[in-house]
Design a binder for these strands. Structure first.
Lengths: 168, 168
DNA sequence: TAAATCTTTCAGTAAATTTTGAAAGTTCGA
DNA sequence: TCGAACTTTCAAAATTTACTGAAAGATTTA
């Protein structure tokens, strides 16, 4: 397989995988494109490469920056903005995990918290089982949340570690 | 808050959270409904409770069974089929994690495997960086995959453990 | 200050996904 | 073997989500 073809395949497949993850196809494709591009790309280049509109490009690039896995850079003497993806996959994964936690785990907890103060008649079996289920989900989510924090923190240490090594 | 209201809130919110996870609203709502129902429910009861069509109910219940978190049961003397949700949240979570791994991590690996045999000119920097990126993603996914397997296995032991305790 | 160059927004449109409901299929008892 | 009771399927409709492109908004240079 030729390199160009392989890159295209990668971009296409990353898009499909994205949709399965509940991320929109274009966002995943832009991310893939930036991942395989050594040079930073401008909005126009992204538009041309993926055959998408300016608006679409802008929206999804912004979203990628919100996730912290793409960065806007300015080249001296150029009016245009260019974009680069974080290339260290481990860092990318940690950012995604962190963000998904924020977006997915935390809302669960806040919903459950509200449901806890249901009128609890201690003789009502149904109420009892409901409350115990809510509390189980809470326990589980809290544990998961802590587990994720631990993972991310561990990684930050590791990252700092390697960084420090570089300066030794 | 009254119990009935709390249950409805739970079902509604579980639906919203589901969509954020890339799971369709109805499927999440049926799951929530079955979670808070002590008695098994028939298709008609689910339809009535969530105000959805028969076809929709059937499709989503089947999907939940595919995920292994809802079971079909038959009551003696009844023609209808009834459905119950696995109530142990830990078990539910493990099933979901396992299934998501199968559906999300494994496809990544198979895509990457194909991309590896790109014509690798050793002097071509671009090709080199591409291959190294693919291989990084592979390494990461494999590690994640193993990590998940470990978690699930650990849990199965724990589960077997508690089961055994019950029979001691 | 105006013009040029580039970015952002957003109403309208297109595409994808979900849902419906009626028809076809299945199962079981008489 | 028939028909009642139920489940499954699937084409069409409804809904949701994503995308376009033109217009408005920035920012820089002259």
């Amino acid at each position: 397989m030729k390199l160009t073809e392989a890159k295209q395949q990668f971009i296409l497949n990353w898009g499909v995988l994205g949709t399965q993850w509940g991320i929109n196809r274009t966002m995943a494709q832009i991310h893939a494109l930036l991942l395989v591009s050594i040079e930073p790309l401008s909005a126009d280049e992204i538009m041309a490469e993926l055959q998408i509109s300016r608006g679409n490009t802008n929206m999804n690039v912004r979203e990628l920056m919100d996730w912290g896995i793409v960065e806007k850079i300015l080249k001296p003497g150029e009016r245009k903005e260019f974009f680069v993806a974080e290339k260290d996959i481990w860092v990318v994964a940690m950012r995604i995990i962190k963000e998904r936690k924020r977006r997915e785990v935390e809302p669960i907890l806040s919903v459950l918290e509200q449901l806890k103060d249901v009128e609890a008649d201690k003789n009502d079996k149904e109420a009892k089982q409901f409350i115990s289920m809510i509390s189980d989900i809470q326990k589980f989510s809290n544990q998961a949340s802590k587990g994720i924090d631990g993972m991310v923190k561990m990684d930050e240490h590791w990252f700092t570690g390697t960084l420090l090594k570089l300066f030794k």
